[in-house]
Amino acid sequence: MPLIRQGDQPVWKKREPLKQYAHWAGWMLGGMLFVWCWAIISENTIWEFLYDADEQAASLIGRMIPPDWSITGSLMLPLWDTINIATVGTVMGIAIAFPLAFLAARNTTPHPALRAVALAIIVSSRSINALIWAMLLVTIVGPGSFAGMLAIALRSIGFVGKLVYEAIEEIHPTPVEALSATGAGRSQVLAYAVWPQIMPAFAGICVYRWDINIREATTLGLVGAGGIGLQMNAAINNLAWGQVATVFVLIFATVVVSEWVSAKVRHAML
């Protein structure tokens, strides 16, 4: 932050003049990029549809209120399925992600080539949404909650794997050194020096992913992978917006409860 002399008056500026211009140029480029993006979107939008958007919205909300409570009973089983898809899927994902994380962490990997493979699996799993995995799996194992569980598991591998391997790379190295110095074997060092250090982070990550998975599991039914999304899809296709509203309320309640549970568990783990 320079003080510049102008005549005999010191003038304080936040940045050097050259840097200031670069700063402005950067903002301008960013702005132009945004305008260009907006132009493309606008090209592909049928703006006529928007003239009655407010009416559409009003009528949509009008038909959603009051929710059609009569179907609540029949939604309980799909809700239970949704929770199971999320939970079992999370457990399966963790079971694969856990060893993968040790292969992917720089300080525990047995070989750089294995590390590259593990990282590739983690990135692929992370980049692709559970819903896309579900679409694929429905064509492979058929519709139903089994496809949903596998989809949740495949998506969770990357998420859990990435956060856990980062936690492993952040451990204190001295206990590892100390246990190696006692002559302990590789697996013993992992169990005694690495695992205790990552355990709280690991538990937190798992519960956090479970919480996200509950949300994701509510939508898998849209592509036929089981859970409450199936009922939601059917209601939307029938334009029965009152029933859709009931599903929304149930999803909202489930998510609130799962968030509360996950916050409690994470708190207890610290």
């Binding site: 493309i40 979107i41 606008s42 592909n44 939008t45 049928i46 549809f49 928007l50 958007a53 559409q56 919205a57 949509l60 819903l131 949300r215 994701e216 509510t218 939508t219 849209l222 939601m232 939307i236 929304f248 999803i251 909202f252 998510v255 609130v256």
Partner: peptide, 20 residues
Amino acid sequence: TFQEIIIAILFVAMFGFGPL
């Protein structure tokens, strides 16, 4: 609370198909 896809269904119903 609501996944992007659920919100998208509602906005598609309001604004019609397309990137908007």
